[in-house]
Design a protein around this nucleic acid. Structure first.
Lengths: 241, 241
DNA sequence: TAAGTTAGTTGGACTGTACAACTAAGTATG
DNA sequence: CATACTTAGTTGTACAGTCCAACTAACTTA
């Protein structure tokens, strides 16, 4: 017990403890859409939700995991082979009913992967799914649909006033490409000139001496500045009403 | 396990589980200052951090607590006797070393109490402490200083662009009193006219047919509208630089 | 009646977005 | 080789809301 609650005579260390897990919501932009990485649960009938899709995650390894974030980073690396440039705690879900095996609590994280990292080799049981609204097509195990919904809401909310989408970009990118990423996540168009003004005013990106060439006018390429901490803006974009 | 991680032959239900607790950071405005409720740990030498101050909290009661939030609400009520109008999950902290008894994880919440609720009778081991910067005077048990710091940061951050301080007010209050609460939490002065414009434009408060009388010009009294969900503003106040 | 204090309003400067029209630079087409 | 088409990027005006400062309003006390 980590509190000052009045205690009985002897420590309650033998009290039943909840099952404790960590789950990770991993986002990336793929095929011009926001996608999330899911894993298929084993099909053994002894398992809860056999064969269903769910968030990557699992038990905390008391022997191997130093802390919760290290545990989340480990699970992310297990499934994608890469280290995420952005890993944030999302919240925790714990209740008597969310796992059929008994009272359980999960610590949820969410991660952003740049496009190239999301294109690498996945674990055999892992697969990308498009986020449609705040959900995915398959019915998810446990309360993972609820956790995913919270993750999408948190992501959309923060994209309104931070530079988080920069972590979804490749090393070099153009301003229209960055704007497109914002628009994909927010699912609404943004004003071009206001977007450029804001991004260039923030001490966030710097031009590289190259252009992105395509069928039309070439665009200036930028990269994130060394200071990689996300930038917070003083306003949201279009007051979403 | 609440995830799709590949599993060994049999369920790992016998794996060692972390100690699991819930802690609550309870804020109120008292004596024109931001204060937090702490409890003194029992002095028995068998306890970790005997006699030290810490956050209210304790073990999850698998038999009695439906979910984590109910557990947090219970602990809040135990110490203050009241129900908070605002209870938000703050995050979770889990590691091998934060509790001397072994690998442990705590689910932290933060709550806002209106002045009158904070003035009631407390549990015998509980006491209010002024928040100075992002800390309190006494050295806290476990990693509670870190959790408190995160709570203060979260509160200050949200006060920049939400109506959260309204939950720290009594039922009826004036606009200057509300502004003073914002200033206490943010620890910086705000512009009077911009503050009034913002608050009155938000569909947040409504005037009551009474005035606050004092030694000077009386002030219009307001109360929160029925729709009690916090309001999000499109801008922060003074870009805190 | 005058001074002091706090409540509340008003107006101009300034910042940054909204909207729309414009110029710039490339490819593809006839 | 001229023209259309597309996307990159700029410019200008309107507007919303804050910042800053001065102002008026209402009450108490001396």
């Amino acid at each position: 017990m980590t509190s000052g609650e009045t205690m009985p005579e002897k420590p309650e260390l033998d009290f039943p403890r909840p099952l404790t897990t960590v789950d990770v919501v991993i986002f990336a932009i793929r095929s011009d859409a926001l996608q999330v990485l899911l894993v298929q649960r084993p099909k053994a009938e002894t398992e809860p939700f056999p064969g269903a899709w769910g968030l990557p995650g699992g038990f905390v390894d008391i022997a191997g995991d130093r802390d919760l974030e290290a545990c989340a980073a480990r699970k992310l690396k297990d499934k994608t082979g890469v280290v995420s440039p952005y890993l944030e705690q999302l919240g925790s879900w714990g209740s008597a009913g969310r796992d059929p095996r008994g009272w359980s609590a999960t610590h949820a994280y969410f991660a952003l992967l740049p496009e190239q990292a999301a294109g690498g080799a996945l674990a055999a049981d892992a697969q990308w799914f498009a986020v449609e609204g705040e959900r995915v097509r398959p019915k998810l195990a446990f309360d993972h649909a609820e956790i995913l919904q919270a993750a999408v809401q948190r992501l959309r909310s923060k994209v309104e006033y931070t530079s988080l989408p920069a972590y979804l970009m490749p090393v070099e990118f153009t301003l229209p490409e960055l704007q497109r990423t914002y628009e994909i996540v927010l699912d609404r168009p943004l004003e071009k000139s206001a977007f450029r003004t804001r991004m260039l005013a923030a001490d966030l990106i710097e031009p590289v001496a190259k252009m992105r060439k395509g069928p039309n006018r070439p665009a200036q390429l930028y990269r994130l500045k060394k200071a990689k901490a996300p930038v917070f803006f003083a306003r949201t974009f279009n007051p979403p009403d």
